[in-house]
Amino acid sequence: MKIKSADLWFKKAAAILALSAAALVILLVCSMAYYALPAIRKFGLHFLHTSTWDPVKEIFGALPFIYGTVISSALALLMALPVSLGIAVYLAELAPCCLREPLSFLIELLAAIPSVVYGLWGIFFLAPFLRETVQPFLFRYFGFLPLFQGEFYGVGMLSAAIILSIMIIPTISSISREVFLTVPSAQREAALALGATRWETIRLAVLGYARSGVLGAVILGLGRALGETMAVTMVIGNRPEISGSLFAPAYTMASVIANEFSEATTDLYLSALIEIGFILFFVTLIINIAARALIWRVSAKIKAK
């Protein structure tokens, strides 16, 4: 009797806690929507696809920020994924045993560095390095592509994407490494017994088995990149323009909120910034849902059909 009622209480308490988490999210969405209402009323859908950001005339279009966030994160992911997978494969499969633990620890340490430190490093080292070495090189050899044209500022989309990729590499690689370590040795032996080389074994047994877990790692990395504020603000150049060139300065949703919130003097300005926050929330939500669905599909395919 007693056990049963304790069980019941536990169930109720857990349910209440779970519901309150959901309630918090709803509260967040509602209050953001409330404060963003003036901007939503004034600009409607124009807010999403126009590029003028003029606080003086009070005309606000958020497209450059959406563009900046999505592109910088996508580029960061593009650069970080191969590197992270390489690191994870090395740490889980190839590195000599005595190196594995210290190196893994070092990588995890990278994830713990505050983003403002990355930003400083970006300003004092990365941006000048890009301006003086990398950008002239890219322009010289790949300058026929619009991607690599324009002034060499150093700060801009390219440096933001690089900083972001450096920031998400530890996340993706350390989670991937852990996923690789869960691959049963029977899988590796199955590949080896077929006469697979070391690389073929990794491809056939390890990457195949671990792919939904790696996808999870990628999503976490992407989530971090989308919401990253400080480091990006310090190196992206903060100019609300859409440019086809990676050298050009850009702006992200998180950066504009952080930069301009204290200066937003009028209600409409403030409301426009809050609407950007609202959009950022939704972009992250959609990407997470899409990724979750992808994982779910992959693992469902593995489980049964």
Binding site: A190, A191, A205, G208
Partner: peptide, 27 residues
């Protein structure tokens, strides 16, 4: 040497990411 010597293990260990066809074709 392992290509000349096939092995079937104590516990079944097909590759989960591969289809039935691709499992057989893997080697």
């Amino acid at each position: 040497i392992r290509r000349k010597i096939g092995m079937v293990f104590q516990r079944p260990n097909p590759f989960p990411a591969l289809s039935i066809y691709d499992n057989v074709a893997a080697g």
